[in-house]
Amino acid sequence: MAADSSEEVLRKYVEGIFDRKGLLMHEEVCRFGEIIKSSRARLKFARELDRRRNICLVDENTYHKLLHSVALAFFESVKDENFTAGSILMNMTFTYHYIPKGRRVHDINYSTSGSSRERLRSLMRKLKQNMLCCNDISYINDYNAKKQVDTDSASSQTVVYLYESLNNHVVWKTMGFWEEILLDSVHHERRQRCTLRPWRDLGNVERDEFNAALCNITFGQLTSYLNNMKLLNLSKTARINFLQKQCVIGGIVEGTEMHSTLYNLVTN
């Protein structure tokens, strides 16, 4: 399929995700599954989601369409060992959310319309089957990790984010994912905040300033990612190993305030 054609299919597919009343047809899901095998397509898909993040609170139907699609994109990333879109997709899992009405997926009160009821049941079967064929992926996890937010009323509502239904996804257990997205984010911040000049053209003072800036950038990004790793239930051992390796790469020396702060973040 030509690149332009694939991008148009992705664009329409994302429109279908955010169609509150619409369901994704079997053919659309299958076509998306083929296209998303490309790292370029995954990046395009991630950017389309990011472009629509102003509507981060979605309805239940949209939530589950997002859940299936993002899970599949992550799974293909792991198979491909290419996490170009990883950082954006992870941010989307901490962005999109919905407020359930005291029901789980299998408790949905289907429409009284026979055809609508069958379409929705068919979609739910397809979503669950798609996840059953992916090793180490728990598609729907009973929402045992929930955020409580205050409302204007005396009661509170339970907000469910995408990451909470994806916290057993194999991508989070893949250290290559974390290493690549951290490196990408550090490089991005460095381009934004540092003057990029050849190392040989820098004086000693400028080199010291550059190294200090790089430490600060690495510290900031590590803080964010370590928090995410904890929310995604990565073990303390995995987080400590990741921290130690990235501190060496980023020049954060053991015994410094930065290192102590990061270590306390992991261990406490």
Rank of each mutant, 00 (worst) to 15 (best):
S77L: 04
E206V: 12
S69L: 08
I240A: 08
A41N: 09
L182Q: 13
L49E: 02
R52G: 03
E15S: 03
F242S: 01
N211P: 06
Y161C: 11
V58M: 05
C215D: 07
F242T: 02
N130Y: 11
S69V: 08
G176K: 12
S69N: 07
L23P: 00
R40N: 12
Y163D: 02
R20D: 02
Y63R: 00
M25S: 13
A85V: 08
K21C: 00
Y263K: 10
F94Y: 07
A46F: 10
N228I: 13
G220N: 15
L49S: 07
M229A: 07
I99H: 13
D152F: 15
I35W: 04
K236C: 02
M25E: 15
N227T: 13
A3S: 14
S260K: 15
E60N: 01
C56Y: 05
G255E: 08
N211Q: 15
A3M: 13
R121H: 06
V70F: 01
P100G: 05
K230S: 14
K65P: 00
C247R: 03
T218M: 14
L66R: 03
C133I: 12
N268E: 12
S116L: 04
F45V: 05
V205C: 11
Y161L: 10
R125T: 10
M90E: 06
L234Y: 06
Y163S: 06
Y13E: 02
H187F: 12
N211H: 15
V9S: 00
P100V: 06
D50R: 12
N130V: 00
F75S: 11
Q192R: 03
S5F: 15
S69W: 06
R53D: 06
K12L: 05
S116I: 06
L72P: 02
V58D: 00
I36S: 05
I35Q: 01
N130D: 15
R42Q: 06
N227D: 10
D136G: 05
T158K: 01
S113D: 11
R239K: 09
R103W: 04
G33T: 03
R53S: 13
V205D: 14
C134I: 07
L166A: 04
R53Q: 13
R40W: 02
A238V: 09
A3Q: 14
I249G: 04
W178E: 07
H26S: 11
K12M: 04
G251W: 15
D50Y: 11
A212G: 04
T223E: 09
K44Y: 07
K173R: 12
F242R: 05
E179M: 12
V160M: 09
D107W: 06
E27A: 05
K128H: 06
L166K: 04
S224E: 10
R52W: 00
M92V: 13
H106I: 15
I35V: 10
R200K: 14
R47S: 00
Q129C: 07
S116E: 02
L89V: 00
N241M: 04
S6Y: 01
A238H: 09
G203I: 10
M229E: 01
